[in-house]
């Protein structure tokens, strides 16, 4: 036990502290990253405490108050059935985040496992995963997601699976590259010599070191996953109408834009945009912290 610790350099306390110091430095240097973190915290807060924040029931219809523009009572106005848009936009946050977080988590776990195995063992595993990933990437990704949902059936779970599949290649590629460059490094050879099994080396020695670039990939990818999921529900897949969800709310509001009722589509679209923007900024910020060379 003692000598394995001495040969495995992954993230020691001193390095963690240095990374934190660096993070503070980068955030202080770049106020935009600080804004991104604040937005991120706000979005998570809204997703968690959403039901406590809303003034109206998001499903309650009220024909006498249909299509009201934004006012002090209804901050974002009301839709064609008189439902309060502010409440609906707030409540939708949780569902939208849940779909994309689940999809990205699934893509991360499966992609990391596939990519790590391919990078570590090489050989036929590498060839098979490589082919699989190339095949996924041979499709326009959003179109593939449409096809998968059409084939599996039109449900929220299948939206998650489809989004996970089209995100899989990105994680598998990063994991493969990151494992491959560490496969024959000194600390891995030392761990091998002291009798660790391949699986143990991969899981406990190499994989933790690939996590920082994978985290960057996650936050860069998250915004895209949210856009994809919202796009799928915009064209009528997955989430069913009365349920509040940003994509479907924009789709419902689109019919009223030509007659001037802009708020129906505007506020859910704005919420979607801000969320994606926050994740993209966060991704850029994290990348600066983890890999200063790629700073643009």
């Amino acid at each position: 036990m003692a000598d394995r610790q001495s040969v495995a350099p992954p993230i020691a306390p001193a390095r963690t502290r240095r990374l934190l110091g660096h993070a503070v430095y980068v955030i202080g240097d770049n106020p935009i990253t600080a804004i991104a973190f604040a937005l991120f915290a706000l979005i998570i807060g809204v997703a968690v405490f959403g039901p406590l924040l809303i003034p109206f029931d998001p499903l309650e219809t009220n024909a006498s108050r249909a299509l009201m523009p934004p006012s002090l009572d209804n901050w974002f106005g009301t839709d064609n059935l008189g439902r309060d848009l502010f409440s609906r936009v707030i409540i939708a946050t949780r569902l939208d985040l849940m779909i994309s977080v689940a999809a990205v988590a699934l893509a991360f776990v499966v992609g990391a496992a596939m990519g790590s195995a391919a990078g570590y063992w090489g050989g036929w595993i590498d060839i098979v995963t490589g082919r699989l990933i190339d095949t996924i990437m041979a499709f326009p990704l959003f179109v593939l997601a449409m096809g998968i949902v059409a084939a599996l059936g039109n449900t929220v779970e299948n939206i998650i699976y489809a989004t996970a599949i089209i995100n899989l290649p990105f994680y598998a590629r990063v994991a493969r590259a990151e494992v491959r460059i560490r496969r024959d490094s000194g600390f891995v050879q030392a761990a091998r010599l002291s009798g660790n099994s391949d699986l143990r080396i991969l899981a406990l020695h190499i994989f933790p070191n690939t996590l920082p670039p994978m985290m960057v990939q996650i936050s860069l990818n998250m915004g895209w996953a949210i856009l994809n999921a919202a796009g799928l529900s915009f064209i009528g897949l997955g989430v069913r109408p009365p349920t509040p969800e940003w994509g479907i709310m924009v789709a419902e509001g689109a019919n009223f834009v030509v007659s001037g009722e802009w708020w129906l589509a505007f506020f859910p679209g704005l919420a979607l945009m801000i969320t994606v923007f926050a994740f993209n900024l966060l991704g850029d910020g994290l990348r600066d912290i983890v890999d200063p060379r790629q700073r643009t």
């Binding site: 994509g247 802009w262 679209g269």
Partner: peptide
């Protein structure tokens, strides 16, 4: 570049319709 990748296409389209068709009347009906 950062704003561009965050824009949902369907939302941009609807915003353009609102501005150029409904408000300004420059564009024909979509």
């Amino acid at each position: 570049v950062t704003a561009g990748v965050s824009l949902p296409t369907f939302f941009t389209g609807i915003a353009l319709i609102y501005v150029f068709y409904y408000l300004l009347g420059w564009a024909p009906a979509p």
